[in-house]
Design a protein around this nucleic acid. Structure first.
Length: 424
RNA sequence: GGGGAGGUGCCAGAGUGGUUGAAUGGGACGGUCUCGAAAACCGUUGUGGGCUCCGGUCCACCGAGGGUUCGAAUCCCUCCCUCCCCGCCA
């Protein structure tokens, strides 16, 4: 959600932001018109209300029955006009709100301008692309051969894009989750166990509704949504709160499953576990003072990189261009891990500063230490790596000629002595 | 699931339909007093929005949303949440 003042005072800035994102600028003009209409209606209705308040007080004092009655009649008419105008204001507000909810965040000046993901910029690559003296297998072959990924039974139980992790595969994922959470604790984050279902208001606050309703699973009986990422409940955590500045920044980490209908990606990445309807993720999230959020974005990127590095994964850091930037983000780094079997880079993490965009939608402010007016916080989010893609990279990159996979040493504390997973 | 009680400001807690944006107490902040502190005393202590000659002024907000009324924290309806008792249950 953008500040209406930003649109009112610097509409060209917002128009440019929309153009850079390959979007229409018409909503800006519609909003400017509605905003003007709203203010003129408010002027009218509020002066009527002031009049009614004043006369109503007089009525309370009046002893003379006739004078009293005539004022009551007059105010009844005023009341009717107020109801009519109030309804108009409400209608304009709704339109304005609907439009505002569809306008994405203004990109940071450092976000390169580009039309699509093809114009994202690779900032650097860390590690060597592993060489094999045999043809490395993709995880959709490796997984079933090792008995750790069971595609058929996932589909049997639920449907396409669902799978079962079995035996050491399930344990490996659990080890990765525990490893990531423990690492984030050392990096200064506080662990949260969150609800996996949220109400519509929470989805709206995080920017998922109304725009991405198609991508969400919903329980229609209870009007609850399944979270598509822990970012949603982590944003909701402090919804409608005013935080003490002394508490900032707040650094959180949380593990949740994520549920996505993937309607927009129908037919893409259907092979393997790269893009399922349900996947696990460990998330990092921050509530920050505006002036420190830029620096904290770099910390979060480093923390995500540290996860890749500790697992011995080869990865690269990309800077997203305006055409590929997420709806709420002002600036985003993607971290992609190399998967030797699929022979491609997989997006495992996306680290963004959304500035006050979510804070406005979710109404999250902080009280400056000097006691001055409450200000919106900045929020940042980043995956401490999505589990399926991390799992893919770990399996594919650590495979050996005999079809076995070496488990990274750093995961040993959670693997109970399993250092190699062998074909069944 | 059944029955009962309740949601008011930072907290506690009043509030006959008519200067109640809200008594009182506590906390916090500022000040007086003091060598300093405590105590005492005085003052300040919400959010959003409109207009503004930037001094203000007006509107809205007492869990949320509707309704009744000239006028609603107060009356009515719906929903949400909390607490207590009974039942059921991982």
């Amino acid at each position: 959600m953008l500040d209406i003042n930003l649109i009112r005072e610097t509409p060209d800035l917002v128009r440019k932001a929309l153009r850079d994102r390959q979007m229409e600028t018409a909503p800006v003009d519609a909003m400017l018109q509605l905003d003007e209409r709203r203010r003129s209606l408010l002027g009218e209705v509020e002066s009527l209300k002031a009049q009614r308040n004043m006369v109503s007080k007089e009525i309370g004092q009046l002893k003379d029955a006739e004078a009293r009655q005539s004022k009551i009649e007059a105010m009844r008419l005023v009341g009717d006009r107020i109801s009519g105008l109030d309804a108009q204001v409400a209608a304009v507000d709704r339109e304005l709100g609907d439009l505002a909810a569809t306008i994405p965040n203004v990109p940071d000046a450092r976000t390169p301008i580009g039309a699509s993901e093809a114009e994202n910029v690779v900032l650097r690559t860390v590690g060597e692309i592993p060489k094999f003296d045999f043809a490395p297998k993709a995880h959709w072959e490796l997984g079933p051969a090792l008995g750790v990924i069971d595609f058929e039974r996932g589909t049997k139980i639920t449907g396409s894009r669902f799978y079962v992790l079995s035996g050491p595969g399930a344990r490996l994922q659990r080890a990765l989750i525990a490893f990531m959470l423990d690492l984030h604790l050392r990096q200064g984050y506080t662990e949260q166990y969150l609800p996996f279902m949220v109400k519509a208001e929470t989805m709206f606050g995080a920017g998922q509704l109304p725009k991405f309703a198609d991508n969400l699973y919903k329980d229609h009986e209870e009007e609850l949504y399944f979270v598509p990422t822990a970012e949603v409940p982590l944003t909701g955590l402090h919804m409608n709160e005013i935080l003490d500045e002394a508490r900032l920044p707040l650094l959180y980490t949380g593990y949740t499953p994520c549920f996505r209908r993937e309607k927009m990606s129908a037919g893409r990445d259907v092979r393997g576990i790269k893009r399922g309807h349900q996947f696990d993720k460990v998330e990092m999230y921050m509530y920050a003072r505006p002036e420190e959020s830029d620096a904290l974005l770099e910390k979060m990127r480093e923390d995500a990189e540290a996860t890749c590095a500790a697992l011995g994964l080869t990865y690269r850091v990309k800077q997203l261009c305006t055409g590929d930037l997420g709806f709420g983000a002002a600036i985003t780094y993607d971290i992609e891990v190399w998967a030797a079997g699929c022979n491609e880079w997989l997006e495992a993490s996306s680290v963004s500063n959304v500035r006050d965009f979510q804070a406005r939608r979710a109404n999250i402010k902080y009280r400056p230490t000097d006691g001055s007016k409450a200000r919106f916080v900045h929020t940042l989010n980043g995956s401490g790596l999505g589990l399926p893609r991390t799992l893919i990279a770990v399996l594919e990159n650590n495979q050996r000629a005999d079809g076995s996979v070496v488990v990274p040493g750093i995961l040993q504390p959670w693997m109970g002595g399993i250092d190699v997973i062998r074909p069944i």
